[in-house]
Design a binder for these strands. Structure first.
Lengths: 189, 189
DNA sequence: TTGCGCGGAGAACGTTCGTTCTCTACTGTA
DNA sequence: TACAGTAGAGAACGAACGTTCTCCGCGCAA
């Protein structure tokens, strides 16, 4: 038998892909079982309920997002470049064939009204992203008001790209971010 | 017996409130029946299926959104004012106690992967909004690239406000829109 | 008044889901 | 080899859902 950590990761990985592709409520635990290759009994010994699994999947997604963002901003040397790297990261993501919007927004829209655990996990992820942007804005020497504006652009790009089915929003949001950065850091335009 | 048009409106109105508050899949047809005061038999003579009702509700929401936007921009005399009125409209909406994000985004996140009819209705609404913004941008004498940037700000404000549970995003998005408008129309900053 | 058609209330049906239970097969040990 | 413990496969269970059906009462023509 595979050890607990491996089984847990297999379940989360499988559930993440299924939930993201079809929506949380459209995926039964049987489908998770089949995809993960872990018996229902085992799944329920690892997670107390489906809600528990959903929250674990969201935490897993948070980790993926954070590390993806970090590696995308790796080559950047200035705070301004790191800010714009966010939108390049989005651009690359939007072009992936499996892209179907932000999993946090989707899950919040689906379950936010009924599950506070889900709501909390989603809110925490967004708060953490806004904090990340706020640090970069401070490093760039721009006023703090710029940070939520950039975060809103990133959020809007994700939903726009998801609904339209095209990656254009990343480029458009990036252009807006450049303009806002220029103005906030005193570049003449 | 109430006439067909009245019954239809009662069902759509009741379904709209329930779907928006709890999510589409969390609301059974029994709950719609009770809230609307229309028998299940009647509902199924007015709508072929729940999917059909969902699409009708989305169309109803499109009408509400369009007329709300129109009346919010009523007092504005310039294109610039009409553009900024979008964000004032959002601000007022975000403060309503029932606000729970954009119904189109929520429904798309919930059912977009499984129902193409829902997907189409959502995409059509967003396309129509972008067209509205594009007209205002043209009237303001700004380059066309500004329009999708403003639309992205509006989308981002809606999801940000929904998840954070505060109306701040409207004000922040409005400030960003002002900056972008100034730059695009050649105002020195 | 009698028969008839129609609509409302909600019971019924078949399906699906989350969760639990049962049975069987396998592993390691003496 | 015999046995104890555990885990997998999936049947089973109760609830909830979308949809259809049945029954009953009401309004209306002759």
């Amino acid at each position: 038998m595979i050890d607990e950590k491996t089984a847990r990761e297999a379940v989360i990985q499988a559930a993440d892909e299924l939930f993201y592709a079809h929506g949380v409520q459209a995926v039964g635990m049987d489908a998770v079982r089949t995809a993960a290759g872990v018996s229902l009994k085992r799944i329920y010994s690892l997670f107390a309920s489906k809600d528990d699994l959903i929250v674990a999947v969201l935490h897993h997604r948070t980790g993926m997002w954070d590390s993806g963002l970090a590696s995308a901003s790796e080559p950047a040397t200035t705070a301004r470049e790191r800010i714009l790297a966010i939108f390049d990261f989005l651009d690359a993501w939007f072009r992936e064939p499996t892209f179907r919007g932000c999993a946090f927004i989707n899950t919040h829209g689906e379950l936010g009204a009924t599950s506070t655990a889900v709501s909390d996990a989603v809110r925490e992820q967004k708060r953490s992203f806004q904090e990340y942007v706020a640090h970069l804005v401070a490093d760039a020497g721009a006023p703090a008001e710029l940070a939520p504006q950039l975060a809103i652009l990133a959020e809007g790009a994700q939903t726009t790209a998801a609904i339209a089915g095209t990656p254009d929003a990343a480029r458009q949001a990036r252009a807006a971010a450049e303009t806002l950065l220029d103005v906030a850091t005193g570049v003449r335009r």
